[in-house]
Amino acid sequence: MLNLANSLTLGRIFTIPVIVVLLYYPSKVTLFLACSLFFLASLTDIFDGYIARTQNQVTTLGKFLDPLADKLLISSILIMLTQIGYVEAWISIVIICREIAITGLRAIAIDMGLVLAADNLGKLKTVVQSLALGGLLLHYTYLGMDMHVVGTWILYVALVLTVYSAGNYMYNLHKIWLTSE
């Protein structure tokens, strides 16, 4: 159960408290460290899935932990960025509520014996959210680019993708539900 893929996922979860502590004391150094940890954690999301599939390490625990780790990481950073004033609260609320709602729908679907895998739109949403949070975590100007402004604009794109992908998920679940009756 505790194979390499699941260990990487757990590692992603264990980075969350460290990132949160770093964001409690926002400075150029702590924000850069938080962004670096977030980047490494995001890389584990790519590798844990790849390892699980190619090394035949797909487990029930991994299927549960992987999306949970993503949601915990993104939500924690959004909450902290809201707390320090880098993200408007309503944006964090919309994104976090979407994640909770889709998790609930996924649980209902599973209970009904339906499976709706993550689609490319949901994966794109996660990538764009991660890019936005990376820019917001860097916050300061680097190489003449105001990373806070860049991150904010990318976050608006992520917000649109977040809402659209939720609607798409609900539509696809509805289609599967109708065809399964």
Rank of each mutant, 00 (worst) to 15 (best):
L2T: 10
N6M: 05
S7P: 00
S7Y: 01
S7L: 12
R12K: 00
I13P: 15
V18I: 15
V18Y: 05
I19V: 14
Y24R: 11
Y25P: 00
P26W: 07
S27Q: 04
K28D: 13
K28I: 13
V29S: 09
V29C: 00
L31F: 08
F38K: 07
F39P: 08
F39Y: 12
A41H: 04
T44F: 09
T44K: 02
D45Y: 06
D48A: 04
Y50E: 04
R53C: 10
Q57P: 11
T59G: 08
T59V: 09
T60N: 14
L61D: 12
L65E: 05
P67R: 05
L68M: 11
D70H: 02
M80N: 05
V87D: 02
E88N: 13
E88P: 06
E88Q: 14
A89P: 14
W90G: 02
I93C: 08
I95N: 11
C97S: 15
R98A: 10
G104C: 09
A107S: 13
A109R: 04
V115E: 15
A117M: 04
A117H: 03
A118Q: 05
N120G: 10
L121D: 03
G122P: 04
G122L: 03
K123Y: 04
T126R: 00
G135F: 02
G135A: 07
G135P: 01
L136K: 01
L137T: 06
L137P: 15
H139T: 11
Y140F: 14
Y140N: 11
T141R: 14
G144K: 04
M145L: 15
V149L: 14
W153V: 10
I154L: 14
Y156E: 00
V160I: 11
L161M: 10
V163S: 01
Y169N: 02
K175C: 13
L178F: 11
T179K: 10
S180M: 05
S180I: 02
